[in-house]
C-alpha cells in the first residue's frame, strides 16, 4: 500500500522539456542564428576593443570616476587603483576585460528588459500575479540548468553566457522596480493626477524618480548576479576570469585558481561600490 507509486507510470517531464527545447531551437533558428553570429561578433569586438586600450589609461579612468562617483572620497578610488594594478600584475588583464564586457552587456540587457516588466507589474495586478511566480522560478532554479538550453540555442561562447545570465540576473530589477513604484506615496500620485498628468507624465516625472533608489538597489543586485553567472558561464565556453578558475580546477592548480578568484572578487567589489555610490549621491532628502 505504501509504495503505490510503483503502479504509476513516471511522467515524462524531462522528455517534454527536451522536445520543447528542440522545437524551439529548430523553429527559431532563423532568430537564434543571427543573434549567435552577429551579437557574438559584436561582443568579441567590444571585449577586444576594451582589452586593446592600454591598462594604464583604463585604470586612471576608473580611479577618477571612482573618486567622483563616491562623492570625492578616496576609499573607492584607492581600492580600484590597487586592485586593478594587482590584476594587471598577475597577467589577467585581458581576462578581466572579457569578464567585464560580459557583465556589462548582460546587466544592461537585464535592465532594459527588467525595468519595463517591473513597471508593467506595478500598474497591473494581473501582470503581477502572472510575473511573480515566473520570477520565483527563474531565481530558484539552479543557475547551471540555464546553461543547457543556452547551449542548445546559441551553441558555446559568449552569447549563451549572456542568455543564461539574463534569465538568472533579471528578476531583482523587475521586483525592485515594481516595489519602488508601488511604494511611492499615494498622495504624490494623487497630486500628479489631480494636476492632469497623463499616465506617462506621472510615470516619468513622479513615479520613476521617486522609485529611483529602490530600482537602483535592484540593479545593483542584478549586476552582482550577472557577475556570478558569467563566471559559471565559463563552463560553456564564455571567456574571462571564470575560465581561468575552471581550468585551474580541472588541473588542480590551487594557486592560479586563487589568483583568478581574487580578480573576480576585486571586480565584484568595484562594481558593487560603484553602483551603490551612484545610488546614494543625489537627492538625499
Amino acid at each position: 500500500m505504501l509504495n503505490f507509486m510503483e503502479n504509476v507510470a513516471q511522467i515524462p517531464i524531462a522528455d517534454w522539456v527536451s522536445k520543447f527545447t528542440d522545437i524551439l531551437t529548430n523553429t527559431f533558428a532563423f532568430l537564434f542564428d543571427p543573434i549567435k553570429n552577429d551579437f557574438g561578433t559584436f561582443m568579441e569586438w567590444l571585449a577586444e576593443l576594451l582589452a586593446s586600450i592600454p591598462p594604464v589609461i583604463v585604470i586612471l579612468l576608473v580611479v577618477i570616476l571612482a573618486f567622483f562617483a563616491s562623492g570625492k572620497r578616496f576609499g573607492l578610488a584607492a581600492f580600484s587603483l590597487i586592485g586593478l594594478l594587482l590584476i594587471w600584475n598577475q597577467g589577467l588583464w585581458e581576462e578581466l576585460m572579457f569578464t567585464f564586457t560580459l557583465v556589462l552587456v548582460a546587466s544592461l540587457l537585464s535592465i532594459i528588459i527588467g525595468v519595463p516588466f517591473g513597471i508593467l507589474m506595478s500598474k497591473s495586478k494581473t501582470a503581477e500575479a502572472i510575473i511573480t511566480p515566473i520570477l520565483d522560478f527563474m531565481q530558484t532554479m539552479p543557475a547551471f540548468v540555464y546553461l543547457i538550453p543556452a547551449v542548445a540555442f546559441f551553441s558555446i561562447g559568449m552569447v549563451p553566457g549572456i542568455f543564461a545570465s539574463l534569465i538568472f540576473a533579471t528578476p531583482p530589477t523587475v521586483r525592485f522596480t515594481n516595489l519602488g513604484i508601488r511604494q511611492v506615496s499615494s498622495e504624490l500620485v494623487e497630486a500628479s493626477e489631480a494636476f492632469g498628468s497623463t499616465g506617462a507624465q506621472k510615470l516619468f516625472k513622479v513615479e520613476l524618480p521617486m522609485a529611483k533608489k529602490t530600482i537602483m538597489a535592484g540593479i545593483n543586485q542584478t549586476v552582482m548576479l550577472a557577475l556570478s553567472m558569467v563566471v559559471i558561464a565559463s563552463m560553456i565556453g564564455a571567456p574571462g576570469l571564470g575560465r581561468e578558475v575552471l581550468s585551474s580546477l580541472q588541473r588542480a592548480q590551487v594557486g592560479t585558481g586563487f589568483v583568478a578568484g581574487l580578480g573576480i572578487v576585486i571586480l565584484a567589489i568595484i562594481i558593487d561600490r560603484f553602483t551603490q555610490s551612484l545610488n546614494s549621491q543625489k537627492g538625499d532628502a
Binding site: E187, E190, A194, F195, G196, V206, P209, M210
Partner: peptide, 16 residues
Amino acid sequence: REKLSMVFQKFALFPH
C-alpha cells in the same frame, strides 16, 4: 489642468 487644483493634507510636494 485648466479648472481644478488641489492642495493636500500632507502637502504632497515632490521631494526630488
